[in-house]
């Protein structure tokens, strides 16, 4: 069973004494749409980059992947090269056997009319959708989405998350977002990173993991949100 286990991870950027991660221990025990949640500057993105490229970083502790061979990390400030249109770029980086999936994702992500445009001509939300789509069409076991849906409107964001959950049930996703409601509603296991005056704190909270917008139990979502807020 796909599994990610981190024990006592302590990490500082080279040349600094500041511990970005301090004795972080957490587990993601199954595939699904998980999340890292916490205020800015607590080390969410640093942890994500660490997971994505273990060999490049020196850290204390142990990270164990089970049935996870390929980890991809996408973030919301990425750009596509400017010499070709977004559609031409997608054609180049997507394998032929994934053509049908590509078309399906393009339709759900509402990108069809934008494929002829250059990346810089798109809005930030459109850019993020194009960027996310190219990652979803690669081979991966764990995909980290670091604010990858920033600037996308709420309705479409919800549709995209539900699509990802429907199409990729056997993959593991780690979604970094500052949207408490969204994380509580749609994510499975939520790693909560706290960085208060008493030092760093980490915890795991079970999200509602809703798979359709109708299945949302508002009361339970409120409880999860409260639990997350109290965990800071």
């Amino acid at each position: 069973m796909m599994h990610l286990e981190c024990s006592n991870i302590t990490y500082s950027y080279p040349g600094t004494d500041h511990k970005v991660l301090d004795a972080l221990t957490c587990t993601l025990s199954r595939p699904g749409f998980h999340s890292i949640f916490g205020p800015s500057g607590v080390g969410k993105s640093s942890f994500a980059r660490l997971l994505a490229d273990l060999n490049r970083h020196t850290f204390l502790g142990k990270i164990e992947f089970t049935e996870i061979q390929t980890v991809l990390y996408s973030y919301n400030l990425e750009r596509l090269p400017g010499w070709s249109s977004a559609g031409a770029h997608l054609d180049k980086v997507v394998a032929k056997e994934k053509e049908a999936l590509k078309q399906e994702l393009i339709n759900i992500f509402e990108l069809s009319p934008l494929l002829g445009s250059r990346f810089h001509q798109l809005s930030m939300g459109q850019q993020n959708r194009i960027n996310l789509i190219r990652y979803l069409l690669q081979t991966f076991d764990l995909l980290i989405l670091d604010e990858s849906l920033a600037n996308v409107d709420e309705k479409l964001r919800q549709a995209i998350i539900l699509t990802i959950k429907r199409i990729f049930p056997q993959k593991m996703f780690l979604y970094i977002s500052h949207n408490l409601m969204e994380v509580s509603t749609f994510c499975d296991e939520i790693l909560v990173f706290g960085g208060g005056s008493t030092g760093k704190s980490y915890g795991t909270i079970q999200g509602q993991n809703c798979c359709s917008s109708e299945a949302v139990d508002r009361k339970k979502v409120d409880e999860t949100m409260l639990e997350i807020m109290n965990a800071f």
Binding site: D53, L72, Y75, E78, R79, P81, G82, W83
Partner: peptide, 25 residues
Amino acid sequence: KDIEHFYIITGKMRWQLEVKIRAFE
């Protein structure tokens, strides 16, 4: 970095592409 990251992490980076990206930018 914001353009090259995708190619590096997905193993699609080639020296010709790297040069093309940097020259274009």
